[in-house]
């Protein structure tokens, strides 16, 4: 990130190649539209390029910072899109991780992380998982989730808190210092 902040295009290219696939997959799951997701991806990386000097490693991991930008922009775009225009686009295997811009190592890292996250998500309850996904992928507040699921707000708060804390524990056990510094 320091190199990117210093306007090192090669470093920026590596950063793009490493995380663009995970960002795009993530945003595609939010937007359900490939063209929109690709467009937002470009905006996300432009913002990264512009604001890399503001990234502070003491405030969190680079991937967290990148995914936070991606999520925020994807959810903002989602609100702008007319729901009628949104079509659920199936993500085919040909669109999957194997791309010209991703290296095999990046693919493996992404897949490895994906497997770890999937395993960790399986370690929490279905309802906890549902609450976390609704918050993270749809940007719903605890109140909105409570309304949607027709559950008491307190239940949702407990479920969300316990779910994320347990997920943290499970991921920390797998990823060690990467997640639990």
């Amino acid at each position: 990130m320091r190199c990117v902040a210093a306007r090192d295009e090669a470093a920026f290219g590596k950063l793009y190649d490493r995380y663009a696939a995970i960002c795009l997959g993530f945003m595609l799951r939010i937007l359900h539209n490939r063209a929109e997701a690709e467009d937002v991806l470009q905006e996300v990386y432009l913002q990264i390029w512009q604001q890399a000097s503001n990234y502070d490693i003491a405030r969190g991991r680079a991937i967290t910072w990148i995914l936070t930008i991606a999520r925020s922009r994807a959810l903002d775009r989602l609100r702008k899109i007319d729901v009628r225009d949104r079509t659920v686009t199936a993500v085919t295997h040909e669109q999957s991780i194997r791309g010209a811009n991703t290296t095999a190592i990046d693919d493996c890292l992404n897949l490895e992380n994906a497997e770890i996250v999937h395993a960790a998500l399986n370690g929490i309850s279905e309802k906890q998982r549902q609450t976390l996904i609704l918050a993270y992928y749809e940007g719903l507040t605890q109140t909105q989730i409570a309304e949607r699921l027709d559950e008491p707000l307190g239940t949702i708060k407990t479920r969300m808190r316990n779910g994320l804390l347990k997920l943290h524990g499970l991921l920390a056990a797998k990823l060690g210092n990467e997640i639990n510094r």
């Binding site: 795009l24 690709e38 969190g60 993500v91 811009n101 991703t102 996904i133």
Partner: peptide
């Protein structure tokens, strides 16, 4: 706060990675 933010960010990895088109890059 950082730890839990990092954990939440890992939820993005539950989505299938999708390679962007060359044109996007």
């Amino acid at each position: 706060s950082r730890e839990l933010s990092d954990t939440a960010a890992m939820l993005a990895f539950s989505a299938m990675p999708v390679a962007p088109q060359q044109e996007t890059r």
